[in-house]
Amino acid sequence: MATIGTFSRTENGFAGAVKTLNLNVKSVKFVPAEGDNENGPDFRIFAGTTVEFGAAWNKQSDKGNAYLSVKLDDPSFPAPIYASLVETEGEELALIWSRRRPAN
């Protein structure tokens, strides 16, 4: 597992950056999703202010720790990127990449 992003909390979501060998997005925002779709995401993920390139769902680990299950996707990607946004020590959160798709 590799850290591909760092984030901080905002008034209503999260803001930070995502960087991989092929991806360097400096302004990423997690914005609460609108609507009451039971299976819909809890957050929409934007690059900059208008380009949506992912979604995130509130989850809880077996140990009871809250995290966000993240799916980033774009037509330029060969496949979606699955990751988890987790709390780290201090104020920051880390976006941790995973090769496997998380179980729902």
Rank of each mutant, 00 (worst) to 15 (best):
M1L: 09
M1F: 10
M1T: 10
I4Y: 13
I4P: 00
G5R: 04
S8Q: 09
R9K: 13
R9Q: 15
N12K: 07
G13P: 05
F14W: 06
A15N: 12
G16C: 08
A17L: 11
V18G: 06
K19L: 08
T20F: 08
T20E: 08
L21G: 13
L21R: 05
N22Y: 07
L23C: 04
N24Q: 10
V25T: 04
V25N: 00
V25M: 11
S27V: 12
V28I: 13
V28R: 00
V31R: 11
G35P: 10
G35W: 08
D36C: 06
N39M: 13
N39P: 00
P41T: 11
D42V: 01
D42W: 00
F43G: 07
F43L: 03
R44A: 09
I45Q: 06
F46G: 04
G48D: 09
T49Q: 12
T49R: 12
T50Y: 07
V51T: 13
E52M: 09
F53Y: 04
A55H: 09
A55P: 08
N58Q: 12
D62L: 08
G64R: 02
G64W: 03
N65P: 00
Y67V: 15
L68I: 03
L68G: 10
V70R: 04
K71G: 12
K71T: 15
L72T: 06
L72W: 05
D73E: 14
D73F: 14
D74S: 15
P75L: 13
S76I: 15
F77T: 10
P78G: 08
A79Q: 13
P80I: 11
Y82R: 01
Y82L: 11
A83L: 07
S84W: 02
V86S: 01
V86R: 11
E87W: 03
E87M: 08
E87H: 05
T88Y: 05
E89R: 07
E92F: 05
E92W: 01
E92D: 15
A94R: 05
A94K: 08
L95A: 08
L95G: 03
S98E: 14
R99L: 12
R100D: 15
R101K: 15
P102R: 02
A103P: 00
N104E: 14
N104V: 13
